[in-house]
Write a protein that binds this DNA or RNA. Sequence first.
DNA 1: TTGTGACTTCTAGTCCGTT
DNA 2: AAACGGACTAGAAGTCACA
Lengths: 84, 84
Amino acid sequence: MKPESQPTTTTPNVEPSARELLARNLVRLRAERRFSQEELAYEAGLHRTFVAHVERRMRNISLDNIEKLALALDVPIASLLEPS
Amino acid sequence: MKPESQPTTTTPNVEPSARELLARNLVRLRAERRFSQEELAYEAGLHRTFVAHVERRMRNISLDNIEKLALALDVPIASLLEPS
DNA sequence: TTGTGACTTCTAGTCCGTT
DNA sequence: AAACGGACTAGAAGTCACA
């Protein structure tokens, strides 16, 4: 059948981009907590549209603001950048 | 009872600040690889003085540049923000 | 409720140095 | 090799109107 070329046996190590990782974790964790973007933004002390931009990978967020999001979601900072 | 007199000074502290974590990991990994600040900066495509500032927690680095440093040091992005 | 483009303000990041 | 400073430019922060 051969559906498509698979990433064969040993190729784990191409990590998605940092923005991608952050975006996915943000969306996932926010959903788990049943927060709207607005609620998360409020908890983090950020603007709603800024969070939306980050979740869409349109913005290059800084470390201080990543930290605010981690605190708002009550997770370690590093976990926001781990592959899910 | 007198619990103990802790240095109540600063950090709200479940975890060191994000800048602190990044700085420590940067210094440690750079030392392990025997890189100078200039060499690391060059590998990451950043400026020497900027890396120095980040290692001293004086600058709020952006995610894209954290990613560049992770690539230069050949570690996962998240590992730069993990407690050592 | 969320996505997006555009805009202004302010700082991240560079580049020239000296200590 | 690293800390530190000044002056500059690129780009993140923050906000808005509207889809």
